[in-house]
Amino acid sequence: MKRIFITGAALLGLMRLCAQTADTTAYETKKLKIEEINLVSSYYSQDGNNASVTGGIGTQKLTDISNVIDVNLVKIGENGIKHNFNIEAGIDHYTSASSDKIDLQANSSASSADTRFYPSLNYTKENTEKGTTIGAGLSSSTEYDYQSFGGTLSFAQKTKDRNGEFSARAQVFLDQVKLLAPIELRGVSGADYSGNAARNTFLGAISYAQVINQNFQVMVEADIVKQQGYLSLPFHRVYFNDGSVYQENLPDSRLKIPIALRASYFLGDNVIIRAYYRYYTDDWNLTSHTANIEVPVKITPFFSISPFYRYYTQTAIKYFNAYQQHTAMDDYYTSNYDLSGFDSNFVGLGVHLNPVNGLFGVKELAMLDIRYAHYTRTTGLNSNIISINLKFK
């Protein structure tokens, strides 16, 4: 399974607020055109000794190569209505020593590697005069043992002075999990080892962003997430204290509630302090705290660096226990250390280049971002990720 890290670098993009009222005296209709293209590539590697496939013990070595192309098209219609179309397609390929143990072999079975393809299409319609934006989107994700389809509806309304913005979003993900069981449990009575199972996720989110003054901006976010269906992973083993082995078994519903606060402070012309805090709780008794800080520093008008750090801590869900620690009295059980209690640290550096006349002699190549980060967890898991983002205007 691939892990995804979010560093909170896009705060300013989330808070694109203007302190001036819209000029509605004249509008120029413009045909649909490509506004920008983003190419993002990343390499991720991890290691550890708590693989869920082998019951919470064993190697967690994994590598992942990801490539994404993102195309943004814009059309200005009558009365200044802005139509924005975003088309994105991504492909990941990972190799996993732990997943290979589904068949109790080493570096030889089909489960040792997989490729995921995930396209999406999003549309927004912005009325600059009224300060409203409505949007809709579709997405999908396909890999060997998992298929997901998603839909999104969104709405945003700016305040009269354009210093604040309220937004709301509703999302649904309809997934199918292939019941790929550990080899020794295939055909065993009571095990899930054939066909597919449904997993559905419903999300509602609201946020409010406010420009406090010319240097300070804040955003408050609150979500509610409901998951229903097959929430276990069929190839995760759980070893009981009597030596017996079973598939992971978790409840078929989960309610998640995260609340977050973002802030951005402009410390003069060359330094920005971006901060983020999130509190999370759910009905599986997992609670977590996330604190993130990033400080972009402009070295020249066209070159900046962004050191960042994130601290995360969580409690274990009530259904978690380590290798051979579950008992026959347990109705639900997992030895997935992602659901255990741990602390983690994520630290890295970003480099940003955006010269006026383009990069490497290419005028249309407007930006280059390179980011590297190192992740450590108190369970022993550690990882590294490097990403490159090229933006064409």
Rank of each mutant, 00 (worst) to 15 (best):
D64G: 05
V220M: 08
N127D: 04
D100S: 00
H289C: 05
S253F: 12
R274L: 03
S66D: 06
T128H: 10
G137D: 02
R254I: 08
T152I: 03
L250C: 13
L12P: 01
D64Q: 06
G187K: 14
I385Q: 09
M329P: 05
I81N: 05
I259N: 09
A222S: 14
I299M: 15
S99H: 07
A106S: 14
V295M: 14
Y311P: 05
W284K: 01
I65T: 12
K61D: 03
K33R: 08
D64Y: 04
E165W: 07
V220R: 01
L381P: 03
L368Q: 08
G55T: 03
Y44F: 13
D369S: 11
Y208T: 08
Y337F: 00
G56L: 00
H352E: 04
S141M: 01
E294H: 00
Y146C: 10
L255E: 08
E184H: 10
I76T: 07
G195E: 09
L233W: 02
R3G: 06
I4P: 02
E221P: 13
R371D: 10
S108H: 07
A113N: 14
N270T: 02
M367T: 07
N79Q: 09
Y44N: 08
Q171S: 12
S232P: 03
A22N: 10
Y246T: 08
G151C: 09
V245I: 14
S253C: 09
T133G: 09
Y44A: 10
L17A: 03
A222G: 14
K33Q: 10
S120P: 02
S141H: 00
T152Y: 02
Y311V: 03
F216W: 13
T25G: 05
Q176T: 07
Y118G: 05
R254D: 10
H83D: 14
Y118D: 08
F202N: 03
N86H: 06
E35M: 06
N50P: 06
L339H: 00
Q324W: 04
S306M: 15
K30Q: 15
Q217I: 08
L185W: 02
T7D: 09
D47I: 05
T54N: 13
G135E: 01
E78S: 05
G150C: 07
S109D: 04
K391V: 11
N79E: 07
G77S: 07
F303K: 15
E35N: 11
T281C: 14
G151P: 09
V225Q: 15
Y280H: 00
A110I: 01
T290Y: 01
N321A: 12
R254L: 14
F320P: 03
Q20K: 14
T290R: 01
E248F: 04
G80R: 13
I386T: 15
L121N: 00
P258Q: 10
F303I: 15
